[in-house]
């Protein structure tokens, strides 16, 4: 059995969360609230050290780059949302975020998620699998095209598209389940090996 305090804390919290399998209880609620609190604190510290400090604090206060007063002011304006009376001020930084993100995504999504995917699909049909891939992408896209009624040949193609989408959803589900199972195996290994030491 482990003699490290950190392992005992981790084991206690693991058991608190797993107790939810029986029913909702105070131990689970304790662990759940602690998780939310520490997560928020973690991200606050992480963002401070990785974004605010190198991108705002150092350039503005150490290097004297006054241009950085603009993002600082916009950032403070964002916090105005906490006070409903002056909350409308937060629209300015929000507009900047939305505009930058929209402009950036328009190009990147078009390039990586549309054009690159189409290019990867239109490869020479050297084997049956590649034909299946092409048919799957084409019919899947037909299914997502709602400007034309899904009837006749178009409807049949859309139906084939649904089959491919169903296989994709099933495969993704199977993958997700396996990922979760590997997590539970990890937690069990931690309890039995690192904490109790009953297995090698």
């Amino acid at each position: 059995m482990s003699t490290t305090l950190g392992v005992w804390i981790a084991a206690f919290l693991t058991l608190c969360i797993l107790s939810f399998l029986y029913k909702d209880n105070p131990f689970y609620k304790f662990a759940e609230h602690l998780f939310v609190g520490t997560s928020a604190g973690y991200w606050a510290a992480y963002y401070y050290h990785n974004i605010l400090k190198p991108n705002l604090y150092v350039p503005l206060f150490k290097e004297g780059k006054l241009l950085y007063i603009i993002p600082l002011a916009l950032g403070i304006m964002m916090l105005m949302r906490l006070w409903p009376r002056i909350g409308w001020i937060s629209r300015w930084p929000l507009a900047f975020i939305v505009g930058t993100y929209a402009g950036y995504n328009l190009i990147t999504y078009l390039q990586t998620n549309a054009l690159a995917q189409v290019k990867a699909t239109l490869t020479p049909f050297t084997d049956v699998s590649r034909v299946i891939l092409f048919v799957g992408v084409l019919t899947g896209l037909i299914y997502f095209f709602f400007s034309k009624e899904h009837r006749g040949i178009f409807g049949k193609a859309a139906r084939v598209g649904i089959w491919f989408l169903m296989v994709a959803f099933g495969a993704s589900f199977g993958y997700t389940v396996m990922a979760r199972v590997s997590l539970i195996i990890g937690r069990m290994m931690f309890l039995l090996k690192d904490w109790l030491g009953v297995i090698d």
Partner: peptide
Amino acid sequence: DYPNTAGQRAIMIGIALGVVSASLRII
């Protein structure tokens, strides 16, 4: 590698086209 990729790719292309149109509407 194949049927799953085909389905995911159709979703990705659909999302990309949706993002492009939504971004244009926002801008």
